[in-house]
């Protein structure tokens, strides 16, 4: 009795909602809801197809360190590790540069230079991921192998992080490519956050005799820090999901290694590089799709967090390519 009332109540509420509205509004609302419902469909479909793997390996899947398709053993840890390491490198290198760019473009650059330079920096976002991959594989990895990695080793070679023979296609190179790719995202969103700082903040500091840098540091950066933090999280979201450029530069080795100069694999690069061979085996495919589910959950959490922090600064067309 009680249960049968629920659909009727729902139907009545729906009718009441529709009655106050034009057909056109109802039509556009239905389309919009269908678009958003796609997010749920994605999650459900991934769960269904990943089910063989989820059932076979359970929660231990996430902690397993062995990935051996031939033996039928699948563990996610090497790829979660690779994703964390490359994203951390990307943030360490990319964040200071992005913040420098944002500060220069919104506070320190002469006015005539601001708009053209902003355009040029945003062109970095227009380069397709696969072109970054080609450049990373054929240009950057050579520079890394021959100059950058030996130079780092000569100074910091005693650290376990920088052991081994530099090969150029490794986690460090993938991290550097990611750093380049997240710069336009972080700098654009932080710049918006800086531009949203009220002018009287700056005027107050300047009128006390502060230099431009002191004004920026004391009155502007502090005021905009929530937006800047959100921008960084948004950049992290982009780094975590980036696929092609990483697949082509990371070396594609399915194991955990302590050294940044060794080959590795991220969640995204694992999926891209082993998709074709997995298509024949349901458990292998299920394991890959479960990895995709993990990636989707990570990036949803990151992006929702970022959005709650910076919602109003985010520009159209931003996003992971």
């Amino acid at each position: 009795m009680q249960l049968s009332r629920i659909p009727r109540a729902l139907g009545r509420a729906l009718l009441a909602w529709i009655r106050g509205r034009s057909y056109f509004e109802v039509l556009t609302a239905i389309v919009s809801i269908a678009v958003v419902a796609l997010l749920g469909v994605i999650a459900v479909v991934l769960f269904i197809v990943a089910e063989p793997s989820i059932r076979t390996f359970g929660i231990g899947f996430l902690g397993g360190t062995v990935w051996d398709p031939v033996a039928g053993i699948f563990g996610a840890a090497p790829f979660i590790y690779g994703t964390l390491v490359t994203s951390a490198i990307a943030l360490l290198l990319g964040v200071p540069i992005s913040l420098g760019i944002a500060i220069f473009l919104s506070e320190l650059a002469p006015p005539w230079l601001r708009i053209p330079l902003t355009y040029v920096v945003e062109l970095l976002a227009a380069v397709p991921s696969v072109v970054y991959g080609l450049w990373g594989l054929r240009v950057l990895s050579n520079v890394m192998r021959n100059s950058v990695e030996p130079a780092i080793q000569s100074v910091l070679g005693f650290l376990p992080l920088f052991q081994g023979n530099p090969i150029g296609t490794d986690m460090f190179t993938a991290g550097v490519i990611l750093a380049i790719m997240i710069i336009p995202t972080i700098s654009a969103v932080s710049r918006e956050a800086l531009l949203a700082v009220p002018e009287n903040q700056r005027e107050a500091a300047l009128s006390l005799g502060a230099t431009h840098w002191e004004t920026t540091r004391v009155a502007v950066l502090r005021y905009a820090r929530a937006g800047i933090f959100g921008a960084i999280v948004l950049g992290l979201g982009r780094a975590v999901g980036e696929t092609m450029a990483v697949t082509m530069t990371i070396g594609n080795r399915n194991a955990i290694s302590g050294s940044l100069f060794s080959q590795g694999q991220t969640i995204a690069s694992l999926i891209a590089s082993s998709w074709a061979e997995a298509a024949t085996s349901p458990v292998y495919l299920g394991a890959l799709i479960e990895m995709g589910l993990v990636l989707m959950l990570i990036s949803l959490v990151i992006n929702i967090a970022a959005r709650l922090m910076v919602g109003r600064f985010i520009r159209r067309g931003e996003g992971a390519a």
Binding site: L39, V45, G241, E242, G319
Partner: peptide, 30 residues
């Protein structure tokens, strides 16, 4: 309702593109 749809549309623009590829493939399989 509009606020919710806007929020989730925004979130959808940030789903890694490889996940979308997996989705399309899995949808056909399902």
């Amino acid at each position: 309702l509009g606020g919710g749809i806007r929020f989730f549309v925004d979130v959808m623009t940030q789903i890694p593109s490889i996940v979308v590829g997996i989705f399309a493939y899995s949808l056909i399989l399902a």
